[in-house]
Design a binder for these strands. Structure first.
Lengths: 125, 125
DNA sequence: TCTTCTGTTATATAAAATATAACACAACTA
DNA sequence: TAGTTGTGTTATATTTTATATAACAGAAGA
């Protein structure tokens, strides 16, 4: 998977990294049990500090996307409470859709976007 | 409109405030041309610093949700490029839905959430 | 045993969020 | 018209967060 970081973005580097990896799991670029690159390797590839990658991995661990093993590194292991995730997602959607609604983006347009995105994510269904 | 701030959240105060106001516009708690409370008044009501409210208003101005008048304060005036908004929303949805997909939340469940949220936002349609 | 790979920890620096205080301008009021 | 009060603005300081540098500790493999 190609991880792309935008250095001009106002989003923190470790947040961008976290997002890309979560998308990577959703698009099956990363599979359950697979190891992510080591913090040094990834930091080197991207051209950022090792500790920034480490922070992204720590967040992913806290959120339940990976398990970190001192020997093997960060292993994909999704363990998230469904109901809680559903609640969080609803809150996040409320914010995103509010902006959409203000801009006269219709419900149907949003549905279309969802379908578009799920073509990449939910390929097995 | 009741603006609720979570002081335990890891989200910056001004971001929470910005989100609540955008949701307020979407739910028609605030209407085009209406003035938001003054920075001091709102800061006092919520119990945060005036400058934090000011930052939220500045962000809303940059994003095209309000116009700030030195005399009258912040006035709701939505002026956002639709195509650009659509792009941004898609990017944001990708991140939110990736998490959902990892948690086995189906496309149909997301559609249902969208409909639920749009009941509050798109009441005129 | 030595080298090399992992993540971790400690510390320092840079950037961003929040707070305090003084300012400038306009509107209202007496 | 002078004074008071309401706006947002600006300057500055403080606190918190993000990022960077360097040394560490444990495990794997030659």
């Amino acid at each position: 998977m190609v991880i792309e970081i935008d250095f001009n973005s106002d989003e923190a580097l470790y947040v961008q990294l976290r997002n890309q990896i979560v998308i990577g799991i959703a698009t099956r670029s990363f599979h359950e049990g697979e190891a992510l690159p080591s913090v040094r390797q990834l930091a080197d590839t991207i051209g950022i500090n090792m500790h920034t990658v480490n922070k992204a991995y720590t967040v992913l661990k806290q959120e339940g996307f990976v398990k970190v093993d001192r020997r093997k590194g960060a292993i994909i292991a999704v363990d998230i409470d469904r109901l809680r995730a559903l609640e969080e997602i609803k809150k996040e959607l409320q914010v995103v859709l509010a902006k959409g609604s203000c801009t006269d983006i219709s419900k149907e347009e949003v549905h279309a976007l969802i379908d578009e995105i799920y073509e990449d994510y939910g390929g097995l269904e």
